[in-house]
Design a protein around this nucleic acid. Structure first.
Lengths: 296, 296
DNA sequence: TCTAGTTTGTAACTATTGCTACAAGCGGAG
DNA sequence: CTCCGCTTGTAGCAATAGTTACAAACTAGA
């Protein structure tokens, strides 16, 4: 006992609850030890319930639990519980969000990257992998013509998707010439057409009109949109809801691009043989003849 | 809401809280979704605090949280919290389940996402934040004309970058018409020109030629390339080396897009007032007159 | 045995939590 | 524009959590 000044005092806020229990145990009374016993036997979840439950479980009264918490260096029971929760959080936290813990000094770039990783993770969480597979199947089917179109911001995504699909398979078209010529393409759309649309906020009326008309002609619509959902979702067969928020005035299309790239990979894998041939032909044209690149 | 019997009712007690959120999300109202958002963004620890704290964190009132819990199939908030605690207990108990947070069953999509997150993280680790700031400064300076150009795959990145910069500032040009017309642009390039190039493997000779000529005329070259580095790096003033490998036959430009978006955000922030004006003007043109959208 | 000190539980109190009832706000249909 | 239904927050309520004060019970030393 004695009054030794700092002999065994628990640290300010550094050590874990378990460590404090182990180091302070000899200072505790019998019933207090019983509480620790219970706590350690189902650590740390036993401490995540109410003080009353924990007291009952330990066959002591609630004030005993409080006294123990105090001797461990906490203000009261809630504080001990918070400490416990933080420990759990640390143990739960996946590799992804670890950044803020280490080097992440808070440069814009790092905060931005964290947000994008979060977007990607959360987008994936809520995505239906079965739907992903169906869409890949749909796009791998060359008996269906595929049309691609994006909005002001997502136009680049559409172009990127089209660009790759064009290399992999035949029968793809990019609608990049403005609404006035869309009707021409609509003429050819039917039951065996796939229309891949990109529409994030602010949603564009023209795209909705096009989607409605295409659906009316029996086309299958695949939509890439944000977490809130473009109105086009109403007429689309498959909808990818992707997180687009970023610490910026602009929405981020990174998650969209990620899924697009995954789809490209999957479609390519499904059509390995055919696309390989096609690629070789293309390479041949690029390297031997220089017709289309007119190398300067 | 009516009393639709079992249309989309959550299961008795089988499913996880996350699963219930995802399956019931479309039934929830806007504020209720906000709560789910917060809960998922720091799952499951965000739900381990008191209902009041969670409500505050989600910027809604506590009754909203209760209503959400009910719609998810729980009696009240404490029951939801118990479910959450059980999940945590499970996860803590078995550290064997290393497969991270989102029950990743190893679907292609998840493996792909893991790779992309890895790319982004590793790209960021080796990036010089000072260089990032310099480039942002460079692009925020309207006394310098900025040119954008990408290759076969990265063309979409260049277009995306240009598209946003065009909204934010004046004096930007996208070189998208093929090598034969590049010389025309070269005529205007000089000391106060910035040439933003994208070149990942396989590197394109034409781009290198252009870069050399531009450098000869005194232009500042900013290059986005892969981890191995395009030969253009030799003549570039600033080089972003980004990881592009993915479980695919194609390289991934996700990390590139991420940095581009971060740059857009940063430049926009630097030129807040001017770009704001510009944006308003643009919005006005879009909404009042419909000249350029010819609404179908 | 008595007494001083410690340990522990009981009971009462307060703060907070989780919940209900209601009314203001909002948006779409007629 | 009005009305209706849905959404949301405010205010109040009951229950419970955490805490305090105090007294009973136990321990140990004389």
């Amino acid at each position: 006992m004695t009054g030794g000044s700092s002999e065994g005092k628990p640290d300010g806020a550094e050590t874990s609850v378990r460590a404090r229990i182990l180091s302070q145990e000899q200072r505790l009374t019998a019933s207090e030890k019983r509480v620790c016993e219970v706590l350690l036997s189902d650590y740390p979840m036993a401490g995540m319930q109410s003080i009353t439950k924990l007291a009952e479980l330990s066959c002591v009264s609630s004030p005993t639990v409080i006294r123990m918490a105090r001797k461990l260096g906490y203000e009261g029971f809630p504080e001990l519980q918070n400490a416990l929760r933080d420990e759990v959080a640390d143990r739960i936290k996946a590799p992804a969000l670890k950044r803020d813990a280490r080097g992440g000094d808070g440069h814009v770039l790092h905060r931005f990257a964290d947000a994008l990783i979060g977007n990607l993770t959360r987008s994936l969480e809520r995505m239906d992998t079965a739907m992903f597979d169906e869409v890949a199947e749909l796009l791998a089917d060359t008996s269906r013509h595929a049309y691609f179109l994006g909005g002001r911001i997502t136009g680049a995504n559409a172009a990127y998707f089209h660009n790759h699909m064009q290399i992999i398979r035949t029968g793809v078209t990019l609608l990049d010439q403005g609404p006035s010529v869309w009707p021409h393409y609509l003429l050819d759309m039917g039951e065996r057409s796939v229309l891949v649309l990109f529409d994030i906020r602010r949603y564009e009326k023209d795209l909705l009109r096009l989607a409605e008309l295409a659906q009316g002609r029996g086309a299958t619509i695949v939509l890439f949109t944000d977490q809130w959902g473009s109105p086009i979702a109403q007429v689309a067969r498959h909808v990818f809801h992707l997180q687009v928020e970023a610490p910026s005035n602009w929405d981020s299309t990174t998650a969209i691009l990620a899924v697009v790239e995954a789809l490209i990979a999957e479609v390519q894998a499904k059509r390995w043989d055919e696309s390989q041939e096609r690629l070789e032909e293309l390479e041949a044209m690029f390297s031997s003849t220089r017709v289309f690149r007119s190398g300067g």
